[in-house]
Design a protein around this nucleic acid. Structure first.
Lengths: 149, 149
DNA sequence: CGATTTATTTGCAAAATGCAAGTATTAGAG
DNA sequence: CTCTAATACTTGCATTTTGCAAATAAATCG
């Protein structure tokens, strides 16, 4: 039996490089961490600071400062939650949305290039496999959620 | 057509959490970055500092210092290359090998737990898919290798 | 031999990290 | 309703990580 971790390790490392290669949009260079934050704010519906920090597994105090940077860069907006005045709700500015969308398109273009080395059947199999994997990982919350420490 | 990047993003994030949850072995806590370094030194045959840094996409000067830390922790050994005295060759100490092996087993145990939510056919399909993906990614060196900047 | 390239290290300054402690607000017990 | 505990977020440090520029040392090439 082959080493399964090896396969995952190499794949995720490569996808990490892909992500890192997609960290600019129209003259705006951002860090990989910032790219992940924009992605997650875009994905969720008006998430709180806490929610995004937890989704990304980042310490809340570090995350608070990262949001401050992104606000200063005019990519993210922070609005008070009318239902709970302790909470701030995050959203992308027009510019932030543009950056996130451009990065997303670039990533998808790279992925399309990767899949161009497969036939349609292989491509569909791979995509279905990743969905299966995501479902299985969400079932074993034990290991694939944010670390305790 | 679904968003392929989304699938990858979530999967790699979760595998990142899995990795982060496997960063200790017998009372020895290490960082995620250090775990990746031990993994890569173990994987390659007597790699040079340069080779590991490039494989991981880390700046060489940062990497040099990370190796210094690991040597201080007695996990890594640095030996001069007899063929080229500019080069230092890296290997794991007995303790480093133990830590790397323990982490590897822990990761594989978590992965086995994930796969336990699938039947054998699905599992084989997923593993074959990841192999396909790795092959395709290595063909499109354009996007999945270490960033230029 | 002398100039250039390559492998690695150090100086420094900036950025990221995380714990402890603080503020502000809400929820819950009595 | 009031007082306490919990929650969401921010700030003060101090440590760690990062990466560019420059230094060192050794190999290569003309």
């Amino acid at each position: 039996m082959e080493n399964v971790r090896e396969l995952f390790q190499i794949m995720t490392r490569r996808f990490g490089f892909l992500n890192k290669n997609c960290c600019s949009a129209g003259g705006c260079d951002i860090s990989l961490v910032q790219s992940h934050i924009l992605y997650e704010i875009d994905r969720q519906h008006q998430p709180s600071i806490q929610q995004v920090a937890e989704a990304l597994g980042t310490d809340i105090t570090t995350f608070s400062r990262q949001i401050q940077s992104l606000i200063k860069m005019n990519l993210v907006k922070k609005s008070p939650d009318p239902n709970d005045r302790r909470v701030f709700v995050l959203s992308l500015t027009t510019e932030g949305k543009y950056v996130a969308t451009t990065i997303d398109q670039q990533c998808n273009a790279y992925l399309a290039e990767i899949f161009s080395h497969m036939n349609d059947f292989e491509k569909e199999t791979v995509i279905r496999s990743i969905k299966l994997l995501n479902e299985a990982m969400s079932k074993s919350s034990l290991c694939c959620s944010t670390p305790i420490g």
